[in-house]
Structure formats: structure tokens, C-alpha cells
């Protein structure tokens, strides 16, 4: 559990980060909280000759809620998410989800940016960001751009982010209606066996809009448009929930691991989603 030798950089501005990324190419990685990257380096599964720490760069952390838009800097920790009153008011699903990530020690260090940018299918924030239809803000040698969370993930650890780009923030419109983040895991600190992020808005006793994403059931997060659509116009009764679950189950593609065989994961995914929808609806 000892990493290979690496050079450590602590630039103070983004220009410095991008210059290092350009200079070292694939041999360089940026590090935020380090709770995914450092274990991989210690296992020597990730070799990073040039490690660029983002801690000293100003303006990368913080939560702003303005004009119905929420913006969260990449270096904002899960602990910050949990303790932000304005965020809890504007997007309570963020706190509910962050409280289910790892344990307090990890949450003091682990960041939103690291969680979404790493592309680990087990991370909770990517699915949540897809549920919220967030935008990821990237900075690179050619300037800034934004990518939809729903378009960001290509495969496990493969994303739309170019090698010389840095993810600097996420932003999304303040969600309306009821919400739920439901996660089944084996123990504290574990990745999800299945997790679901659900936002539902209500009008006239019926579902006006619904957005549903799930985590760790494929090599990317799964936002299922058809699952959400199955709820719209319904009263969120048994048939509608069943239709949403059926739609989601045709979009996920879990693999067997120590959490269990595929049949179990599919069953658990349906249960977790059903519970998330019920809770979100009860809050809508």
C-alpha cells in the first residue's frame, strides 16, 4: 500500500494547473480530496508521476444560490454540502445524498468535483447530478465550457472531460417538488448496492415532472428518461411506480460482484427505486 514515486505540485492559479497538464499530458492528474485517487495510487493501480493539488487555488470552493440557480465549486466538500443551510433549503436532496456518502472523516475531505469528475460508477454524485440535470463547468487551454451531466459519462472512469481540462464547478436549477435519495449498502463506507435519486413535482394531485437516476448499476450513472416519463400524469400509484421501475430496469446493466449476483441487484434496484419514488412523492 505504498505508491510509486511522484512529483507533487501545488499551483496557486488555474493557469498554472493547465500549464502542468499540458506539459505532462497523461502523466499528470489533478487531485481534489484524494479519496478515490490516493487509494488507487497506494494500490499502484493508478500511476501518477505528476500530481497536481488544487487546494491552493482560490475560488474553487463554495456554494452560491442565486436567481434559482445553484452553483457549487469543485473543491466544496461533502461536509460543506451537509452544513450549508442555503443549499439545504434550495436543494434538500443534496444533503440527503451527501449524508449517505462514506463516513464523516471521508466527507471532510471528499469533494463534489472529485466525486463527479472521477467517473467512478460507484460514486453517488454523478447520478444525483444527472437527476438534477446539472451542468459541469470545465476549464482548459481553449477556455471554459459546460457539459451536461447527462452527457458527461462515457464508461467507467471515461468522461467527456479532455485530459488538459479541469472541472471547476457544477451548477443546476433549484429543483422543485419532492425529492429522495435512497441507497442500499452493505456497511458504512461502502458503495451502493443500488441507489436512486428522484425529484418529483406535483400539480393537481398528479405528477407534473419527474427525474430519476440510479447509481452503481451500470458502468455509468443511469438517468432514465422513460422511467421519469412513466410517472408523469399519474398519481404515483402502484401501477405507475411499477412502470417506472420496469423502465429503469431496462436501462440498467449491473454486473456481479461481492455485493451479489445480477438477479439480486436488479431486484434490489427495483425496491430501492420504488421506495425513493414513494418518499419523493410524499414530499411533493
Amino acid at each position: 500500500m505504498i505508491p510509486a514515486a511522484f512529483e507533487y505540485y501545488r499551483p496557486t492559479d488555474m493557469e498554472g494547473v493547465i500549464a502542468l497538464l499540458q506539459e505532462h499530458g497523461d502523466d499528470a492528474r489533478v487531485i481534489a480530496g484524494g479519496h478515490s485517487l490516493i487509494p488507487m495510487m497506494k494500490l499502484r493501480m493508478a500511476e501518477v508521476p505528476h500530481l497536481i493539488d488544487l487546494q491552493a487555488i482560490e475560488g474553487l470552493s463554495g456554494i452560491t444560490v442565486a436567481d434559482g440557480t445553484i452553483s457549487i465549486g469543485a473543491m466544496t466538500t461533502q461536509h460543506d454540502i451537509i452544513n450549508s443551510a442555503s443549499l439545504a433549503a434550495a436543494a434538500p436532496i443534496m444533503k440527503e445524498a451527501a449524508l449517505q456518502i462514506a463516513d464523516p472523516q471521508v466527507r471532510y475531505m471528499g469533494t463534489v468535483g472529485g466525486n463527479v469528475a472521477n467517473g467512478d460508477p460507484g460514486n453517488d454524485m454523478p447520478g444525483l447530478m444527472q437527476c438534477l440535470n446539472a451542468k459541469f463547468h470545465l476549464t482548459g487551454p481553449d477556455g471554459d465550457r459546460a457539459v451536461d451531466a447527462r452527457d458527461f459519462y462515457e464508461a467507467a472512469y471515461m468522461t467527456e472531460r479532455e485530459g488538459e481540462e479541469v472541472l471547476t464547478a457544477v451548477s443546476f436549477a433549484a429543483p422543485v417538488g419532492g425529492y429522495a435519495y435512497e441507497k442500499q449498502k452493505r456497511k458504512i463506507g461502502d458503495y451502493a448496492t443500488a441507489a436512486a435519486a428522484v425529484q418529483i413535482s406535483k400539480a393537481d394531485g398528479k405528477v407534473a415532472a419527474a427525474s430519476i437516476a440510479m447509481t452503481n448499476l451500470s458502468d455509468t450513472p443511469v438517468w432514465s428518461q422513460t422511467a421519469g416519463a412513466a410517472l408523469v400524469g399519474a398519481d404515483c400509484g402502484e401501477a405507475a411506480v411499477k412502470a417506472a421501475v420496469t423502465a429503469m430496469l431496462s436501462d440498467i446493466d449491473p454486473t456481479e460482484d461481492n455485493r451479489g449476483p445480477v438477479a439480486f441487484k436488479r431486484h434490489a434496484a427495483g425496491i430501492v427505486l420504488g421506495r425513493a419514488i414513494a418518499r419523493a412523492w410524499s414530499r411533493a
Binding site: Q184, R186, T193, R259, G260, P261, A263, F264, H267, A268
Partner: peptide, 9 residues
């Protein structure tokens, strides 16, 4: 979890 689920199944 999965083995308990398997028993139920």
C-alpha cells in the same frame, strides 16, 4: 444482503 435475499427468493 444478497444471501438473505437468495434465501427468501
Amino acid at each position: 444482503h444478497w444471501r438473505i435475499w437468495q434465501t427468501a427468493n
